[in-house]
Amino acid sequence: MTNTLPVLESLVLAAVLFALGLICVLVRRNIVFMLMGLEIMLNAAGLAFIAAGARWGSADGQVMFIFILTLAAAEVSVGLALILQMFQRFKTVDVDVLRRMEG
């Protein structure tokens, strides 16, 4: 493959997705949506790694993506378990309710 790859565009796309994910995390009060925002951000980071790996023709980018994937899987499993636990205890998915944990 000698044709140029859309590396720069991918990076910009990753930045856009990351920003969108950040907005999601900041705006939402529903903890499920916040977790989704996190996933978007993680995915954007993965995209940036892949793009960088493609830029240098190196496998490292994809390796890092795989680690991000692993991280996301672990994070989601624990995060969702926490959400279930939270819903069970507080009967809501509103993170602002958790303020009562303020120290």
């Binding site: 995390v25 900041l26 916040m34 303020e102 120290g103």
Partner: peptide, 17 residues
């Protein structure tokens, strides 16, 4: 400093960002 520890997750995220 304690004033910043609101317990509000979104506030933390915002500061982090």
């Amino acid at each position: 400093l304690r004033q910043t520890q609101t317990g509000n997750l979104r506030w933390y995220m915002g500061v982090l960002a």
